[in-house]
């Protein structure tokens, strides 16, 4: 008899994460990996020559000045906010899983391509706050990593959010000491992002967050090298005991 095959651990993780966020009312959105400058940068309040552009090591397309490999799935937020503006809606919750690209030398903890899960919530002004970001991420990390997980915010800067925070997660891997790990970034959408998407920042606002997916899996399962994920190697896919949940 032929056995069942296997899913890649990234697929399994996205399913688990999608399910946790579904219970908090988040839909899932996708967008192109080859992005235009507006959706990857300018529409995120990162205009040309803005210092935040230098923070991201971008792959540019030859002879196409307007084309980049997206450096974050935050680009999809801009597209979703534009759709919201067209539909005349005032509230939206989305997560955006997808591949992103950074021109960085690769080693056991850096890959030039990796998955990111970004998310955002917008609603009528005053209805969505930084405290909601903290509540949402606290619930997410507790459900995904275990009830002992907790989070803390540190000040940061991203351009498309204000205020901006780094999100550290306290995680204790089985048999190891607990520690704080930098897991994602987030903050309140900068009013310029809301405005550039065609919405009125006086009436609508919200939070955004995002982080690498492989890092989360590496911590959760003790995976030693990020390059294993895109090696196309079935020994990696079968490197876990798998249990189907019914």
């Amino acid at each position: 008899m032929i056995q069942k095959g296997r899913l890649h651990p990234i697929s399994i993780a996205i399913r688990e994460i999608a399910d946790i966020f579904a219970h908090m009312g988040f839909g899932i959105a996708y967008g192109p990996e080859l992005e235009d400058d507006f959706h990857n940068f300018t529409g995120l309040n990162i205009p040309p020559n803005h210092p935040a552009r230098g923070m991201q090591d971008t792959f540019w397309v030859k002879d196409q000045r307007d084309s980049v490999l997206r450096t974050h799935t935050t680009s999809v937020s801009v597209r979703e906010l534009e759709k919201l503006a067209k539909s005349g809606g005032t509230s939206l919750r989305r997560i955006m899983p997808g591949k992103v690209f950074r021109n960085e030398a690769t080693d056991s903890t850096h890959e030039a391509q990796f998955y990111q899960i970004d998310g955002f919530v917008v609603g009528p002004t005053g209805s969505v706050s930084l405290a909601h970001l903290k509540g949402t991420l606290t619930r997410f990390y507790r459900e995904y990593l275990g009830a002992d997980a907790k989070i803390r915010f540190r000040p940061s800067f991203f351009g498309f959010t204000e205020p901006s925070v780094e999100v550290d997660v306290w995680f204790q891997a089985p048999g190891k000491e607990g520690r704080w790990l930098e897991m994602s970034g987030g903050g309140m959408f900068h009013p310029n992002v809301i405005r550039d998407a065609g919405l009125n920042p006086k009436n609508i606002g919200g939070f955004a967050f995002g982080g690498g997916l492989e890092r989360l899996l590496m911590v959760k399962y003790g995976i030693p090298d990020v390059r294993l994920f895109y090696s196309g190697d079935i020994r990696f896919v079968y490197g876990f005991d798998e249990k189907k949940l019914v």
């Binding site: 399913r15 399962y221 490197g239 876990f240 189907k244």
Partner: peptide
Amino acid sequence: MPVQYTLGAYKQF
């Protein structure tokens, strides 16, 4: 509803 799985700790090959 996509099938959900839980994975055990990674065992390096």
